[in-house]
Design a protein around this nucleic acid. Sequence first.
RNA 1: CGGGGCGUAGCUCAGCCUGGUAGAGCGCCAGCUUUGGGAGCUGGAUGCCGGAGGUUCGAAUCCUCUCGCCCCGACCA
Length: 437
Amino acid sequence: MRLSAYFLPLLKENPAEAQIVSHRLMLRAGMIRQASAGIYSWLPLGFRVLKKIEQIVREEQDASGAQEMLMPTIQSAELWRESGRYDDYGKEMLRIRDRADREMLYGPTNEELITDIFRSVVKSYRDLPKNLYHIQWKFRDEVRPRFGVMRGREFLMKDNYSFDIDQKAARHSYNKMFVAYLRTFARMGLKAIPMRADTGPIGGDLSHEFIILADTGESAVYCDKAWLEADILAEAANVDYENDLQPFVDKWTRLYAATDEKHDPAAIPADRLVTARGIEVGHIFYFGTKYSKPMNAVVAAPDGQMVPVEMGSYGIGVSRLVGAIIEASHDENGIIWPESVAPFKVGLVNLRASDKKCTAACDELYAKLRAAQLEVLYDDRDESPGAKFATMDLIGLPWQLVVGPRGLAAGKVELKHRKTGVREELTPEAALQKLAS
RNA sequence: CGGGGCGUAGCUCAGCCUGGUAGAGCGCCAGCUUUGGGAGCUGGAUGCCGGAGGUUCGAAUCCUCUCGCCCCGACCA
């Protein structure tokens, strides 16, 4: 993509309404635009990142055996009356009436709808287990939206729902998601620490929040310092979902980690304790028959008895992750995208667009990068070098390929790594090879 | 939902107290000069001063109402 043609409204100054760094950077980098409080349009650059994150989530869900579907954003109030949540949800639920004066709502989550679909189709334990997910926009009419996409009213969420015949099987479904979540976040360059969460009236130990550490996180968290060195991805990547996952889950829940509400100073020696701030990016939850009972989602067990299915639900805040990743990865000059979610892999910088030789060299590199299937944003604008460097640092592409008359005279281009700041003088061919590897 | 604050050019903001008919910097457009970390000069365009009502000869400025947005708290993927 040529930057001269790209819709990328950059801001040099910080918009007054943005308080935290991810919000400021997303606005300045032209990723989003606020439509109203807590509701955002995603501009091309931001949308690319959103899609990258969504795709990683999708791949890991699929790998775990979950199946993707899509449920509507608008739901009927009827189902919510059945579960009893229509009144419980209160003003956070956006309620709408259609032309026939039917009560509708913009879904804040989908337990009722998925349970309705499930119960109307699945009648036997032979059809279990099932795990269904979708990635869909949700709406929760927060009293106080803030922090940009981190705490919006409209947000994109992956949510899935597992159905099992008994608690043992449900625990296996839960464990699968536990593993899938570790893998998902690790692939985004994040260290998401599973922290035991409130399970509500059901009790037990089957609820975890996945928290990433970031200085600007909204809540205080406490964990064993061993978490900081733990290489989760290396271990999670090799997990076979068909095996018993309990030993793996036990291992990654043994190390101390707790949110503010759950923190017990007596549970961990002071010299092992790390105090930090965290952002919740995922939540997994086993809730048994909370919905299947009132909504009569029952299946025939092997003994012929009709039993309510055991359910769990699992959420990942996809749009929130865009902000969360920036919170965890930025510097004073801008965003530093992990390669897996970067909107483009490389920014090609033409330092002097008015120079024919320089532009010819850039055009050639651009063609070769594209031929190599590398995602490239080509800054072909007639701007000063300083402005171009500042733009590249702001939007945070992992690699900057800088081409100027001075270097070209020596047959060299410069390859800068955004994260480390390391710059290398290379021949154009060597730079291409390095980027392609 | 309680408490506080802010709405003036695309962005950041001054002007409001003390009423006299709209400003700066950045950005944008044109031209010239520049060019390895947000370049310089010259010229130019841009505003229902959030909206409605009121006071006044006259309102961005004073009063009332209203809408929107932000912050703190309680609540949350």
